[in-house]
């Protein structure tokens, strides 16, 4: 069943065409990779899906509903969570609080309840904390729960972003270069965690990533963009051999010489 569909999405910034007629369908339960050289329009596409930008033309359909032009908070509330390429944690909050904060939808008690510390407020807090700890456990961050988020090492901050996104109880999670800055050991762990999202949490994943070992290792399907346009889509095997993909990554003259470059871009 189609969970997210982009229908001929266009986005311009002044004279620059960032996205030109991009369409794709992400099936429920898929890990869907989005790759392309730097400046290909991947982040713009993320921002269009999450409501940061409104598409000039075309539609974004999520779970049967047209969400193009909705505000980011409204998109998030409908079940699309995301992480950021340039990590955006709430740096002065603790790791645990960073996750809890995304649990807005779990709140039952009113503001008055919080001010007067009623029992239903205490129950809310307990539920939030419990759920946050489960997610920290999944992402391997339990040991840091009480630390200030800004003090975590880089790789852990990326995983914390995923844990925070999961707190939204999303149907679809968008990961923007989650492996950036990770060493190969951390990247392997990340692969396992992304599969866990699909297999155990029954989530769909839209993944932008430059680390080809991660992309080829976890994706069910890959969509390739360059200069804002779709140049290929298929399984990792198909994409790997696609002549236009090779041309985009290696330059125009490249023949059929093996795998795309940038197999482990940091």
């Amino acid at each position: 069943m189609s969970l997210l569909a982009l229908e001929r999405v266009n986005k311009r910034f002044g004279g620059l065409r960032a996205l030109g007629d991009v369409s794709f369908v992400l099936e429920s339960g898929q890990i869907f990779g989005l790759i392309g050289p730097n400046g290909a329009g991947k982040t713009t596409l993320f921002n269009v899906v999450t409501g940061v930008y409104r598409p000039d033309t075309g539609r974004v359909v999520f779970d049967g509903e047209d969400i193009s032009g909705l505000r980011p908070a409204a998109v998030a509330a409908r079940g699309i969570a995301r992480t950021f390429q340039n990590i955006r944690l709430f740096r002065s909050l603790t790791v645990e609080e960073n996750v809890m904060v995304a649990g807005h939808h779990m709140q039952q008690a009113s503001l008055i309840g919080a001010v007067f510390r009623t029992q239903s407020h205490a129950k809310d807090e307990l539920a939030l904390r419990t759920r946050a700890h489960e997610l920290l456990q999944i992402m391997g961050l339990s040991a840091f729960a009480g630390d200030v988020a800004g003090s975590l090492p880089y790789g852990s901050q990326r995983r914390l972003e995923i844990a925070r996104a999961l707190m939204l109880k999303p149907k679809l999670i968008l990961l923007d270069e989650p492996a950036a800055g990770m060493n190969s050991q951390e990247a392997d762990e990340l692969k396992r965690q992304i599969r866990f999202l699909r297999d155990e949490l029954k989530l769909s994943v839209l993944l932008v990533e430059h680390n080809m070992s991660v992309v080829m290792g976890v994706c069910d399907r890959i969509h390739v963009v360059d200069h804002g346009e779709t140049i290929a889509e298929g399984t990792p095997e198909e994409v790997r051999r696609h002549p236009r993909v090779l041309a985009a990554y290696l330059g125009k003259e490249s023949g059929e010489s093996g795998r795309p470059a940038r197999s482990s871009e940091a």
Binding site: P72, A73, A81, L89, F90, R91, L93, V101, A102, H105
Partner: peptide
């Protein structure tokens, strides 16, 4: 701390 991230977490 980060209004854009807060929006993305469905915080009104």
């Amino acid at each position: 701390e980060d209004e854009i991230a807060a929006e993305a977490m469905a915080i009104p």
